[in-house]
Design a protein around this nucleic acid. Structure first.
Lengths: 145, 145
DNA sequence: ATCCCAATTACGAATAATTCTTATATAAGA
DNA sequence: TCTTATATAAGAATTATTCGTAATTGGGAT
């Protein structure tokens, strides 16, 4: 189900120093439920490394984003969330609970690609197309409903 | 080009009291360039109403969002932005400058509608589908590049 | 037109999220 | 092992936002 990650390899492939803090932050994002906030990551990592500094986690997350090892997730809430899946995919946003689910479908991506090939946007070069699908889960996925 | 807004009517249609502060905040969002931040709105409004309180602007923006007179814009930056266009539309995000442009196309919306009618998402009822199109403007639209 | 009151605003203090500064520690190449 | 550029810890500082309270006011009722 979940893709296996060789964290140390991923870091070194980006020429980043392998530090225990970076390994644990990446591990946290891969293992946590779903699109964690910075606070979620700090809490998770502190379970095994109680002394990690909040500033360090902020710093590491920024480094990981810059090196495309994780992505920021846009939300309408104030807090930023992070996503360990770096392949292009879409998001389902639940309007009632706080849950964001990944949605992947290559047919859909093909449809979008075709559409924009036939409908170039003037003065704009597209790099990435992501859908924000808002709605409601019939059965909610977390407790914060 | 720009849709005319009867701000006082829009407020009263939502059963909101018409106050000078609310009128000016809505006016600011409609007249400002592009998806302003709260700070942008405060600065703009203070040009004609130097004593408006920041807290009031935060409060008004929240009221306007709750009443669907404006929308929040998801961004990867920390600050929230607002959008006076409430009809469904998509956004072009420039990776270099800080500019967000609206993108509307009913053919595209139809394609998406058809796709999701044929590809129901299990356990999820779709309310709204928006594209986040990231890329680069060939000729940048603002100074903050 | 005036009165009244619930709703709204101003103000500033409080909180929360994030960044910055500086000293210390450490990963990894030589 | 040594060296040094880079990363981390700690906490102060900054920034964005919320909250509490008193004063003001829009608009319905009279």
């Amino acid at each position: 189900m979940k893709k296996e990650h060789d964290i140390r390899y991923e870091l070194s492939a980006k020429k980043l120093k392998i530090t225990p803090q970076r390994v644990k932050v990446l591990e946290a994002i891969y293992e946590m439920d779903n699109h964690p906030t910075t606070e979620n990551v700090i809490d998770y990592v502190r379970k095994s490394d109680p002394n990690i500094s909040a500033g360090t986690v902020y710093n590491i997350l920024e480094v990981l984003v810059k090196n495309d090892l994780i992505k920021k997730v846009k939300t309408e809430k104030d807090v930023m969330r992070y996503d360990g899946m770096t392949e292009n995919h879409h998001h389902l946003y639940c309007k009632q609970c706080d849950y964001i689910e990944d949605y992947t479908n290559s047919e859909l991506d093909k449809i979008l690609k075709d559409y924009f090939e036939q409908n170039k946007i003037d003065n704009f070069i597209i790099d990435e197309i992501k859908l924000s699908i808002s709605g409601n889960f019939v059965i909610h996925k977390n407790k914060n409903h």
